[in-house]
Design a protein around this nucleic acid. Structure first.
Length: 329
DNA sequence: TCACACTTATCGCACAACCC
DNA sequence: GGGTTGTGCGATAAGTGTGA
């Protein structure tokens, strides 16, 4: 058995030794019995070839899934750490990611890692439903899901899940809608890195309010100036947020944000901090306009726009920040 | 108009280098 | 040898520019 992280989609990190310590990942696949295969044929129209493969499981099989830490186990671990006077972990998502990459498998084994499968590579099965059933039969836990025939079915499942979300034993940020029939799924193809047959529908992100303390202009490798708001630290969706990008001068104008304003902050995809609004009623009159720089904050050269582009760029080809970011890139 | 690449941000964790 | 610090990595979303 070998295991790898997703990486860039092509090359990931070898995490075999750590994944082997996860109890929910069977070291030996379970071979379904005759009655189970018979039922599988009846329910999911699987071919003789697939049925035969399942009776031996000889050959290569690729499974994708999610390593996670159940809420209860995460709370228990932090309680134990607190008791011992040790530092507790901020959230289960990053702890799971970090635990999988540990150099010492014994450390990974000490963390309450769990695994749920959501993809079985093509072995000849015709639908996603069949994939999930096969995964269950060969010994994997699978992500919960339901089949819907109409858009309304998906809407109602989304609402049902949103209600049920807090009661689940693991964190979720939405649901994934996937075309059931593999033939249609393949026919739809891939756009960039995203297959057309699969769509994520996220829940509205958690919100918090905080103050804008300052706005700093960052110069990227292309020379583009990006305003980044320095925020009063605020806890949102499992982490403490200190900064949020304002993208460009147009975004500052659109939001109408000033230094000193109380703003509403969310995290897109529960990851990226984002200012979504300004609470103008809380203004005291001491708020300051955000100055659009005329000179580069790093090399003091003039900045300007490129044609109709709304972004500002540093005019100095040898700007230190550009060079630095280019090297970093 | 669409597809795709680029840019930017965040966090926690791993690991090497450094200091005491 | 142990603690601290700095850097890099992985995962991820959204806005924008570019080229077909």
């Amino acid at each position: 058995m070998t295991a790898a992280t997703r990486g860039d989609g092509m090359i990931g990190e070898d995490v075999t030794q750590n994944v082997r310590t996860i109890e929910a990942v069977p070291l030996k696949l379970r071979i379904p019995n005759n009655a189970e295969i018979k039922q599988l044929k009846k329910d999911f129209d699987i071919s003789e070839k697939v049925a035969k493969f399942l009776t031996t499981l000889h050959g290569r099989i690729e499974i994708r899934g999610e390593v996670y830490i159940p809420k209860k186990d995460f709370a228990k671990l932090n309680k134990e750490l607190e008791k011992r006077g040790e530092k507790t972990f901020a959230n289960p998502r990053n702890l799971a990611a970090g635990s999988v990459r540990q150099l010492d498998p014994a450390v990974s084994a000490s963390r309450p890692l769990n695994f749920m499968a959501w993809h079985l590579d093509d072995i000849g099965q015709k639908t996603q439903e069949a994939s999930m059933e096969i995964l269950r039969l060969i010994g994997f836990k699978t992500v919960p899901g339901e089949r819907g025939k109409k858009i309304e079915d998906i809407e109602s499942y989304y609402k049902h899940l949103a209600k049920k979300r807090e009661k689940l034993n693991f964190w979720i940020d939405g649901l994934v809608i996937r075309v059931n029939r593999h033939k249609i799924y393949k026919k739809l193809g891939v756009v960039g890195k995203t297959p057309r047959g699969i769509v994520a529908w996220k829940f509205p992100p958690e919100e918090a309010t905080t103050k804008v303390l300052a706005v700093n202009w960052f110069v990227g490798r292309t020379g583009k100036l990006t305003p980044v708001a320095l925020l009063q630290p605020v806890f949102v969706a499992g982490t403490t947020v200190n900064h949020a990008t304002l993208h460009n001068a147009e975004e500052i104008k659109r939001l109408g944000v000033k230094i000193g304003d109380t703003v509403i902050v969310t995290k897109a995809g529960d990851i990226i901090p984002k200012i979504v609004g300004v609470l103008e009623k809380l203004r005291t009159g001491k708020e300051e306009f955000i100055k659009i720089p005329k000179k580069c904050p790093v090399c003091d050269s003039y900045v300007g726009k490129k044609g109709d582009n709304i972004d500002l760029y540093c005019s100095n080809k040898n700007c230190f920040s550009k060079e630095k970011e280019r090297i970093l890139y």
